[in-house]
Amino acid sequence: MKTIMWISAFITCGLIIGIIVYVFAKGIPFISWDLLSTSPTYIPPHIGILPDIMNTIYIVIASLVVMVPLGAGAAIYLEEYATNQKVVAVIEYAAETLSGIPSIIYGLVGMLFFCEFAGLRTSILAGALTLVIMNLPSIMRTTQESLKTVPQSYREGAFALGAGKWRVIRTVVLPGCVDGIITGCVLATGRILGESAALLFTAGFAHTLNSFFEGLMSPGATLTVALYVYAKEQGEFGAAFAIAAILMILTLGINSLAMWLERHFRKMREQGYPQEKTKE
């Protein structure tokens, strides 16, 4: 029994190490400054992933900018305003449901709604908005968790001075949940970097270099989509592995950052709030 367990744990470990080593071995030789800093051309045949890098950055920024107010706002509603438990249950069930929907379905509905119905066509912005819906539950959850740790006594203290609800939230509650929002953003960034199915039909797979605002309204491939296109449709495995290696470095980095942040914030909170949460 113990052996089986040990083997299973070993497989898990071996898989990730194997994947990392393999992708790095195949991909790192292909990473060059030229690859990172140029756009691709057909004549002469040349591959550069600068546009894909820029598109990825654009889509991350655009998604976070829209997602943070929506997700944090929803969390604030649930934790601070909502009094009707049924409404809370419905909203939380909806969030659960959203987090279970596969990304291909988001891609499809994003295409129908943002690209066609809202007239955004295939564009980074349409892709970003699709990702916003996808990642909403996660940022909601992290914000909610950290709102729960803001001591009730802060709210009481502010209310007792005659502050209105909104002032209490803005001045006393929100500063206390910034950590949750940041953690949520980092997690979302990781997920956006890895997302492909939802973007294929919403953001498209163009490799043109644009400025930020131009880019938002034009189609563009992110790194993951570019990887897919190079590997599956163009047979450019060198470029695909190079992108895979970059993606691995980025996602590993971001995931460790998220873990570190979580630990760091927990420690800070333990030092920062000396009092226990008191509830009458």
């Binding site: 898990t12 470990c13 990730i16 890895g194 199915a197 989509v225 990887l227 996602t251």
Partner: peptide
């Protein structure tokens, strides 16, 4: 800690990378 990090990393690998490795290996 090592095992849990490994699991965390596995979860973070983009699906296209799984696809690529599957395709090539």
């Amino acid at each position: 800690w090592l095992l849990q990090s490994a699991v965390g990393m596995l979860a973070g690998v983009p699906s296209v990378v799984y696809g690529l490795v599957g395709m090539m290996v």
